[in-house]
């Protein structure tokens, strides 16, 4: 089993072992930082792995917004002539704070943490974790190759029927 992604035409395959490593890194980060939630996502807004207290949070919606926010920041950096991209975004709320950090060009780490947790700890541990995730991703890119065909003709036919049922359409 694996997770497949394409970036700039190159496919990245997350093996079960590498996926477990990512989850362990997230768990370790949450234990050490006392952050309430951490999401590892790609820049297109797909959540890949997350940990912590996600009650009441629509992960996909939060990730889509975070990815949009981060992409806008990258464009701002470019327009301002920054040779290095802005590495993180920090949003301070009344009760909780949000910290977004890039992991290479294609991934993001999204951290939600309580006001009682010092920002310095989050910055330090996020940096350590993104470095470790980046090493893992570089290793994966070297090993990634052929991905299995997951969607066949039968899948497409069954999908058509499911779409008609869900959308209330009559099959022609």
């Amino acid at each position: 089993m694996d997770i497949q992604q394409r970036h700039n035409g190159k496919r990245v395959v997350f093996s079960e072992a590498s996926f477990q490593k990512i989850r362990l890194l997230i768990r370790d980060f949450l234990l050490r930082s006392r952050a309430s939630m951490c999401i590892f996502a790609d820049v297109n807004g797909y959540p890949i792995a997350y940990g912590g207290d996600s009650r009441g949070v629509q992960i996909s919606s939060l990730t889509a917004l975070a990815a949009g926010s981060f992409s806008a920041t990258l464009e701002m950096a470019r327009w301002l002539g920054e040779e290095q991209r802005f590495r993180f975004i920090y949003h301070e709320g009344a009760h909780r704070n949000l910290y977004l950090s890039n992991i290479g060009d294609n991934y993001l780490m999204i951290v939600l943490f309580d006001k009682s947790v010092p920002l310095g700890i989050i910055r330090l541990l996020t940096r350590q974790t993104t470095d470790r995730l980046n090493e893992l991703l570089n290793d994966l890119r070297r090993k990634s190759d052929q991905a299995t065909q997951l969607l066949d003709l039968e899948f497409r036919d069954l999908l058509d029927k499911e779409l008609d049922r869900t959308f209330g359409l009559n099959r022609s």
Binding site: I3, R6, G45, Y46, A147
Partner: peptide
Amino acid sequence: MHVDAFKREVIFK
């Protein structure tokens, strides 16, 4: 397309 075989999901944009 994003394929997550652990949750057995296929996501399209």
